[in-house]
Simulated scan of single mutants.
Amino acid sequence: MGTAEVGPPVCDDPRVDYPNDQAPGAPVRSGIPEHGRIPKYYAVKAQIDRLVGELGEGGLIPTERDLSERYGVARETVRQALRELVLEGKLRRQGRGTVVAGPKLAQPLSLASYTEGVRRQGRTPGRSLVTLDRFPCPDALAAETGLERGEPVWHLERVLLADDERVGLESTYVSVARLPHLDTEFEPDSSFYGYLHERGIGFGDADERIETVLATPREALLVGTPPALPMLLIHRVSRDTEGRPLERVRSLYRGDRFSFTTHLRG
């Protein structure tokens, strides 16, 4: 008895073109495995991706039913292709439809503020206050930042906005002794780094770590995303120009709306 060949389903429908071989920045062979067989949904995804380029930002994508008939595939195949394009940030849900998303926000990995990074791309930054409270510094935060265990610290949590679109969630921890009037002087929708600068506090250096995570149900609700959407999480511990502890920040960014850039020198 012969053995059946195991592999992804082959898309042999003549109405579905395979992806182009290579474009600048595209994966090698545009994701086609060496054996040349690709799943049907991937071929459909490539076709919809071309449609995205033709429609432009804000363009309305045809319904799953229309795409299914156009490409001669099952609606579940179309659904999987659309789901991946949404996760990649090329499409976004709007009401009961799907539209072409704008380009991702490219945030520099530097000591520049979120405000500066968003403005450089012609977008309007904003923030919405979730909470501002104070509590004794716990052991873990003290060990990480160099603050004294039990000393009062502020916790500032805000939703990050770009052109009124929710794109992230930021939690900042800072000593009350450094900023005793944060709760009365600081405007929650403004730049925290700008507030520090106005008070003569400058950044010296920082340690930063990036990882991918899934948002908790609470975080997903605040940012307005499905819990299954991949998120980019940045942990930062900053010090001032004299090397003293300044802030501990936990920034959660939507993986479909953000990328990060840095300049390396040999």
Rank of each mutant, 00 (worst) to 15 (best):
I32G: 01
E157C: 13
M1N: 09
I61M: 11
K90G: 07
T241G: 02
R178H: 04
S190K: 11
Y173R: 12
V10K: 07
E64Y: 01
T225Y: 02
P188N: 04
L182Q: 04
S191Y: 04
D163Y: 03
S191M: 06
R209Y: 06
P217M: 07
G89M: 05
E144H: 08
G56E: 01
R70K: 09
H263T: 15
G146N: 08
R236A: 08
T77A: 08
R127A: 15
G202C: 07
E76W: 01
A106P: 00
E157T: 14
R50M: 06
V118G: 08
L222V: 05
A101I: 01
V153I: 15
H155D: 03
T145D: 04
C11S: 14
F192D: 07
L232I: 11
D13E: 08
L105Q: 08
V16M: 03
T98H: 09
F260R: 14
L214S: 10
V174R: 02
G200R: 02
E211K: 14
G202D: 12
M231N: 06
R15G: 11
K90S: 13
H155S: 12
E34S: 14
G122I: 09
G56D: 02
R50F: 01
E116T: 11
Y114N: 09
F203W: 04
T98A: 03
R127V: 00
L82W: 08
P62Y: 05
E88M: 13
G31F: 09
V6N: 06
G97D: 15
L105R: 10
N20E: 13
P188Y: 06
T131G: 11
P180Q: 07
P33W: 12
A101S: 14
